[in-house]
């Protein structure tokens, strides 16, 4: 990281920051902080709590990356982004990684020149309706008024779904989740549609969640994952393998509870040893310390722990693992081997 001549004084004042184009990994190390783009507030995924601490599932990924790179899970600057600002923030170098339940699509990957490093949540767009309407399938929604939270792929999926089923609808695009919810509860729209996880988290905050049903149809594939700038493969590798480390850790039964024991000395399972750095030089290859994965896992636990703590069935959001179970349990989580 270097101070440019023009911005020297401003850098000192703290309103400008230098970004060397050499590599994001070196920048982050030099800065001592990871700049991580998150949503402006979606309970369960990324939202500030009453004390202003960010918490949630996406936040957990950020913290794991920070722990892997810097050894400190708190060395993260969370940059709230909207649907509009998120891509510019990443492209211009304001943030190092965007973990803002962003759907991995072809055009974002190719045309907008970003690199999705993996999927941390397999989602799909669903519908919520009041129980009293007696709707049991999304195919019965002809003529309904639909509240949409703008800024995601939701609008496109919705248009496609209704068009392909030859139905009409009235879209009501709403900027924030809280306002969409208010419209929905007041009956200004019949249906609220967004990612199924978002619906569950929204319903959890209702006064009487039982009065509302989630329809069985999931009308789209929404693989949500962290993304980085195109062309910086080293940094992309770091984020990708940090995410994979969390997933593999669950698969191998490594959790924040037993990791201290497991990493104390090389054990019987060679893959665990390689993951935790007691064997091999995987960390060095990434340009990180040998125990990078251990730190990442200790930051908030493995994938299962992050899931259970933030969005799992014991939380108000109450999501089942579903597609997001390990491949061994019939889910889609399948981390490449650490070898």
């Amino acid at each position: 990281m270097k101070k440019s001549v023009l911005f020297g004084a401003m850098t000192v004042a703290g309103v400008a920051a230098g970004v060397a184009s050499a590599g994001t990994l070196d920048d982050v190390k030099a800065r001592g902080k990871l700049n991580c783009g998150v949503t402006t507030g979606l309970v369960g995924f990324a939202a500030p709590d009453a004390n202003g601490e960010w918490e949630g599932f996406d936040v957990g990924v950020c913290r794991a990356v920070a722990a892997a790179v810097l050894g400190d899970a708190t060395a993260v600057e969370f940059v709230p982004t909207t649907g509009k600002t998120r891509f510019t923030a990443l492209a211009s170098g304001e943030i190092d990684v965007l973990a803002r339940n962003t759907t991995w699509t072809f055009s974002r990957d190719v045309d907008l020149k970003f690199e999705f490093v993996g999927v941390n949540y397999y989602d799909g767009q669903g519908f919520m309706v009041p129980k009293e309407l007696g709707v049991s399938s999304a195919k019965e929604l002809d003529g309904a008024t639909v509240c949409i939270q703008t800024g995601t792929t939701t609008e496109l999926n919705l248009a496609d779904f209704f068009r392909s089923n030859n139905m009409s609808y009235e879209p009501v695009p709403i900027e924030t989740n809280a306002e969409a919810q208010q419209q929905y509860l007041a009956g200004a729209c019949d249906v609220y549609t967004t990612d199924a996880s978002g619906l569950a988290s929204t319903r959890a905050t209702f006064e009487t969640p039982a009065d509302h049903v989630l329809l069985p149809e999931i009308v789209s594939k929404e693989p949500l994952g962290p993304l980085v700038r195109h062309g910086d493969s080293e940094w992309g590798d770091v984020v990708r393998w940090t995410l994979n480390a969390l997933i593999t850790a669950e698969e191998l039964g490594v959790s924040s509870a037993n990791i201290a024991d497991m990493s104390a000395a090389a054990g019987d399972n060679p893959e665990i040893n390689r993951l935790l750095g007691t064997e091999g030089t995987l960390g060095e290859m990434l340009g990180l310390e040998a125990d990078w994965a251990k730190k990442a896992i200790m930051a908030g636990g493995n994938y299962a722990e992050l899931f259970e703590k933030n969005i799992g069935e014991t939380t108000p959001i109450g999501l089942a693992r579903g597609l997001n179970a390990q491949w061994t349990d019939g889910g889609l989580l399948y981390s490449p081997p650490f070898r």
Binding site: F7, A16, A17, V19, S21
Partner: peptide, 22 residues
Amino acid sequence: LFVASVMLAYFFPPESTVDLFL
């Protein structure tokens, strides 16, 4: 404000970023 949030970042030198506040 849209300019400030989505465009202005492209007009600063490549090796630096400027705070959203500024």
